[in-house]
Design a protein around this nucleic acid. Structure first.
Lengths: 232, 232
DNA sequence: TTTTATTATTGTATTCTTAACATTTATTTT
DNA sequence: AAAATAAATGTTAAGAATACAATAATAAAA
């Protein structure tokens, strides 16, 4: 149902914000994208990127709009996280916020951002403290990302299309915040049977060069149909 | 942040409903509690129990209020599930709904409900189809409950204070929707070291009688501190 | 051209966890 | 005393996760 009362008109309405925790990965660290708020309240403080829900949109629409606006891209991976509703969370007015987290490949998107919004990437550990309840949102997003990344092939969203095993391992180490054993990691990943090994090598990191891999979504989808689960 | 624009006043406001998927367990099946909607739109159809968020409440407050109103109890286990936001989900007016799921012990609460609201318990499989997007909410709640129940000791919320191993197993079988091996299940549960075996027996189910157990929250909390995880 | 330095690549043995599986016990009813 | 009913209990095998170190390929330096 939607209410015990028959009168929708007597009910309170609220402003609904959508705030996005945008994750990126720069070969070393997991990062989040923040902007300096340029209006009151809390002008000049760091904050997540957000906007208000419009009557013509779903929450996913709004999150996509905000992400598109900022990056110029569509089809960014994102997921609804949680609805934050402390009564005084925004001192200006009663506002609830639905947090979304998004995964983007820093290389693709970088330039755009910096120009338009003077947005900035921060390592999770080095991020400044944020306005309102945004720190809590980030904390929750990291936990969610951790749970998802070990059971769904979403980590690849944070990498370039072609990547080395080393990059993939570094990524998972920074998401999970723990060191992983190289051989075990590679064995496990190969066992998942969702990567194609390319002829091509990445020569930037070593004399020997390391093979590049690509995520094969079709292979993954076939595995899912066969009941084979992704599990790192 | 909360918006790129400085003007909160120009933004749309929405009605925010809170709808509760209330789970119960009757020794055989996992059940949900539904009510027959007694006002338009969709009068006479089955629906979840819900209400509207007030300006003075958090979402948790609202969910608690709704649950209390219906059952007469406080401190019911509940968790926020997801915010549903299709533009036309409620034909009467733009309304978003934040779904919560809750776990209650049917024995404690039964009488209250039936009287006040002509609410009714339905087995998951036999539940009628519901108004709006409530079926989707229920589907999502079941998945969430499954994931939680294997990693957090929330199943006990659905049982009487004292229960038999058989009851506990039946409960997990119905949550997970699969048969479990009796010996393996008991070994695993005993291994978790969170139950106390009572002297008392339940004589209702067999000539021999079966021992009653109780969940020991303090033991569990100590385990958590020691890094021992609950995992069924 | 030989040596050195650097990172990539690869496999096995061990431990732990999960899964499969059947008999005996206690008690009441007939 | 026998039959019926559900409860209680352990072991073995298979599979998964973990610990662990030597060799290969290459470019740069000597």
């Amino acid at each position: 149902m939607t209410d015990q009362l028959n009168n929708y008109n007597s009910e309170d309405k609220v402003l609904l914000a959508v705030d996005c925790i945008i994750f990126g990965f720069d070969q070393e660290d997991l990062k989040i994208l923040l902007i300096k708020r340029d209006f009151e309240p809390e002008k000049g403080k760091w904050s997540l990127i957000g906007g208000f829900l419009k009557n013509t949109e779903t929450l996913d629409d709004a999150a996509n709009r905000i992400l598109h606006h900022l990056t110029g891209f569509d089809k960014i991976y994102m997921e609804q996280l949680y609805n934050f509703s402390k009564v005084d969370r925004d001192p200006a007015e009663r506002t609830l916020s639905v947090a979304y987290y998004a995964l983007i490949n820093i290389e693709d998107h970088d330039e755009h951002l910096i120009e338009q919004y003077s947005a900035q990437w921060f390592s999770i550990e080095e991020a400044p403290s944020l306005i309102f309840d945004h720190d809590e949102m980030v904390r929750k997003a990291i936990l969610r990302l951790r749970r998802r990344a070990i059971s769904k092939p979403i980590g690849f969203e944070l990498l370039p299309e072609k990547f080395t095993m080393r990059q993939l391992q570094k990524l998972y180490e920074s998401i999970l915040n723990e060191k992983l054993d190289k051989r075990n990691f590679i064995n496990k990943v190969n066992g998942l049977d969702v990567l194609v090994k390319l002829e091509e090598k990445d020569m930037s990191s070593s004399r020997k060069g390391s093979y590049l891999y690509q995520f094969d979504k079709e292979k993954y989808d076939r595995n899912v149909e066969d009941g084979i689960t992704f599990k790192i």
